[in-house]
């Protein structure tokens, strides 16, 4: 057990969650992320919303430390996201990147990288995402939705403290989507911080504790979910929720 009394700093850092300060990114003269600053709470599900091309995926990559922003700072519990720190995080990409291996080998790989040796864990994970008994199948022959679920199982394998998901249910049928939503709720309840990109409004309503809203690389508001869906802080968000296409 960690003794917080002896480590007062650790406790406060723990409560800091994920903070982005002044994140800017441009490519070829185009500003893709513009001075984004926000502090996400250390637990719960943060939904990142906004129209296509808003920079949601880019923001996720920057937050996970895959892309270095031109300016600004990303801190998770008070520390920069180093190679080592990233091992305590996981990300499910918009387009899942599966290894050219069997279903179970994909999960085993993640377990091995994390230094976890626990044979029953893998089967439990596959069972959890509805891929029970599919162990030996080639991962890349799975359907789109199944690939998405396998990618989630692989992300959960390392028991991350911070989990990024980029439109994980976009190509899924309602049953599979529901299955993933249930898993995300379970994870949140177990204390995992989740950052979820979605433009599925009903899904965000069901899951989100707080919402980030972006258009064109601009952060318009960061609000408590309940108030966001009732009275969004920005006119763009209001139009987005009303179903107007924004670009």
């Amino acid at each position: 057990m960690r003794d917080f009394v002896d480590m007062p700093d650790a406790r406060t850092r723990h409560e800091q969650g994920l903070t982005l300060s002044g994140i800017s990114l441009s490519r070829n003269g185009t500003t893709l992320l513009n001075d984004i600053t926000c502090a996400l709470p250390p637990s719960g599900i943060t939904a990142v919303m906004g129209p296509n091309g808003a920079g949601k995926s880019l923001l996720l990559r920057v937050a996970h430390g895959l892309i270095d922003a031109d300016q600004g700072l990303v801190l998770w519990q008070g520390d920069a996201v180093t190679e080592e720190a990233r091992k305590a995080q996981a990300m499910v990409f918009q387009k899942p990147v599966l290894l050219r291996r069997s279903v179970e080998a994909n999960v085993d790989f993640a377990l091995k990288v994390a230094g976890i040796r626990h044979p029953s864990l893998r089967d439990a994970l596959l069972n959890r995402v509805g891929l029970k008994g599919r162990n030996k199948q080639p991962a890349r022959l799975l359907s789109g939705g199944e690939q998405q679920r396998l990618a989630l199982a692989r992300a959960l394998a390392t028991n991350p403290k911070l989990l990024f998901l980029d439109e994980p249910t976009a190509s899924l049928d309602p049953t599979s989507a529901r299955m993933i939503e249930d898993i995300l709720r379970e994870e949140r309840d177990a204390g995992t911080k989740i950052v979820l990109v979605t433009h599925d409004v009903p899904q965000a309503r069901r899951l989100a504790d707080d919402v980030l809203f972006l258009t064109s690389g601009q952060l318009h508001c960061h609000q408590d979910a309940a108030s966001f869906f009732q009275t969004p802080d920005s006119p763009e968000a209001a139009r987005f929720l009303a179903g107007h296409i924004l670009n």
């Binding site: 895959l66 990233r86 990409f93």
Partner: peptide, 16 residues
């Protein structure tokens, strides 16, 4: 090119 981001996400070493 296809795997690099996923590998970085795993925090995989260069040898790995």
């Amino acid at each position: 090119h296809e795997y690099a981001e996923q590998f970085r996400s795993f925090g995989l070493s260069r040898i790995g």
